[in-house]
């Protein structure tokens, strides 16, 4: 447990870049693995597909999960994670542009640890990421 890996699941490259920037701005220097859709995220987590042979003992400290994605959306990913023993208790923060009640409620129902709406204002976004990192990477104790 030397490095605390963050898995960022996000299809929009702009958002990937901005999120990475926000993390950097917030002085969160953890290794960030980016999966560009749900399938890739699951491959990484379970060491399948492109990530076959990956040491799955390296478990992400935190998963930042977008909801609207091609191939497999965030809710489905969340459902798969929670159904598997290995990832059942993994902290997953839903990070999305959706402000729909339906999405929020469904996310929590599927076992999301947190639900954060990406603000338009970048400064606000940086603040949100900062607090998120502080909480989930520093204060929170892993199960």
């Amino acid at each position: 447990m030397k490095t605390k890996v963050i898995l960022l699941v996000e299809d929009n490259p702009d958002d990937v870049k901005l999120t990475l920037r926000a993390l950097k701005k917030s002085n969160i220097l953890n290794e960030v693995v980016v999966a560009h859709d749900g399938v890739e995220a699951l491959d990484y987590l379970f060491g399948t597909g492109a990530y076959a042979g990956r040491d799955t003992r390296v478990v992400p400290q935190l998963v930042l999960l977008d909801l609207k994605m091609p191939k497999m959306d965030g809710l489905e990913v969340l459902h798969r994670l929670r159904a598997d023993e290995r990832t059942k208790l993994m902290p997953v923060v839903v990070l999305t542009t959706s402000s729909e009640d339906k999405d929020r409620v469904e996310s929590y129902a599927q076992g999301a640890s947190s639900y954060i709406r990406k603000p338009v204002d970048f400064e606000q976004f940086v603040r949100a990421v900062q607090q998120l990192g502080l909480y989930w990477l520093v204060l929170n104790e892993a199960p």
Partner: peptide
Amino acid sequence: LRSPLRSIVGFSHA
């Protein structure tokens, strides 16, 4: 509309 907007704001900031 929010997504591109976020990009504009974010990268203007950058």
